[in-house]
Design a protein around this nucleic acid. Structure first.
Lengths: 246, 246
DNA sequence: CGTCCCGTTGATCCCTATCAAATGTAGTGG
DNA sequence: CCACTACATTTGATAGGGATCAACGGGACG
């Protein structure tokens, strides 16, 4: 018989805020746990969206496959985040695949309980709306970057984001706490593994990062932030006293 | 004294499905109407998200300004769509600016009524979640396109989308029913007005489109669709009878 | 009728994808 | 423990798609 799941596992997640303890306990009774090995999928693009998930431990990546066989990394999931909520948005199938990037522990619920649960807990839909809204804004930020920024800037941003989400202090610097390849960074930023490799090599030579196989350590956050801000961050140029051209 | 607004204005909108007539009538009593001239903003990026809107007539565009002065078109709003729902996602300020691209009629409500209204009408939050979910998926599709497709493909897609949303049959072909410049198409697709101009000139010479100042007519939808699908749509190449290489 | 804005087109350059090949690293099975 | 294999990474050479720079033409509107 499985140990009952502790309420504390989900109580502090954004999605479950402002909800009575009894509701959370009822929800946990219906949860299943899964242990995923590296490379295992939680669900696949195109499959019926029959479950939704919370990541408890480990890391997942969400990827989209294009018709012509390329891949795009939608995002990395960190512990405490929900994923696979297609059904909540009334999309019958998953628009992407979720893969474990190393051993991961997830909770899952059947999508069918979503409707009942939202009916009983008005806050739930609102929390979900907030979550999805945040993701929409992130997506728009990314569109803006792909549209207007250069590759180096975008790669710097991507690495900073990963460090923010999953950075771990070491004596060498801050390391991204899960295995990630040049190829995957390329798929996050709309470039190629070759260009990413060249950029990282350049940064390594300048002492900004150290990196090895599936491993990146940031040594100089501030320098990387400068790169992410772009070349054009001119200290507000001097103007005439009136602020008008003469 | 203003004419009372008819329930039929909003009854069929996605956002207001499955809601009792009385709720809609109550909502309409709190609505304000605004007539916007071409170029007028409904709201501006960075302002407090004090209202949300429904477009009744006309067309709006939603744009983001980047720190370095460039612009990205987030989307075009067509009649019947909501916009400016930042507050619903608990974002205190608008992440973008909404501008009328020609004379437009909008309804607006104070954001403050959102919370009360969602509390009273559980379906409302669910509908909003669906709407935002659709937009999130659209945004991801766009990220995928910016990451993996070439400019010609993306521009073709953008124009097809505009035609889908706002196309009007004419004897010359299907015309996009509002004024739109090369610059704006460039801002939708992450390219420059020069490249867009060259592409449209090429298509004009091949008879796919006619275009003039702020005006685009599609003559050969099928050809444009082919361009949007990309160069590589090979009819599944012949394979050995076993499907395996010999 | 003049002015502003939009569109067109040429010339040039450069960032980055592509092609190609070697090196390095983890894991595996004998 | 070592050889073997699969996969990551690095680096060079080359080419090309678009951006950028520059100039002109043309329609709309005051």
């Amino acid at each position: 018989m499985p140990t009952p799941l502790s309420r504390s596992l989900i109580k502090n997640l954004e999605l479950f805020q402002h909800m009575p303890d009894e509701a959370l306990d009822a929800l946990l009774l219906q949860a299943q746990t899964h242990l995923l090995a590296t490379g295992d999928p939680a669900f696949r693009q195109g499959a019926n969206a029959e479950h939704f998930y919370v990541l408890l431990h480990g890391n997942m990546k969400v990827v989209q496959n294009t018709p012509d066989g390329e891949q795009v990394v939608v995002r990395y999931v960190i512990p405490g985040e929900v994923f696979g909520i297609a059904h909540a948005m009334r999309r019958p199938i998953y628009p992407a695949t979720a893969l474990a990037v190393h051993e991961s522990l997830v909770l899952s619920w059947p999508s069918s309980i979503w409707d009942q649960f939202t009916a009983d807990n008005p806050h739930f839909a609102l929390n979900a709306l907030q979550t999805v809204g945040q993701r929409l804004q992130d997506a728009h930020a990314r569109i803006q970057q792909l549209s207007t920024e250069e590759v180096e800037q975008r790669v710097a941003r991507a690495i900073l984001r990963l460090v923010d989400q999953s950075g771990k202090e070491t004596d060498e610097g801050i390391v991204i706490n899960f295995p990630i390849t040049r190829q995957e960074i390329a798929e996050m930023t709309g470039t190629t593994l070759h260009t990413v490799s060249r950029l990282l090599s350049g940064w390594r030579d300048r002492g900004l990062v150290k990196s090895g196989r599936k491993r990146i350590v940031v040594c100089a956050m501030d320098e990387l932030i400068r790169l992410a801000e772009g070349p054009q961050h001119i200290a507000t140029p001097p103007v005439t006293s009136s602020g008008q051209p003469v």
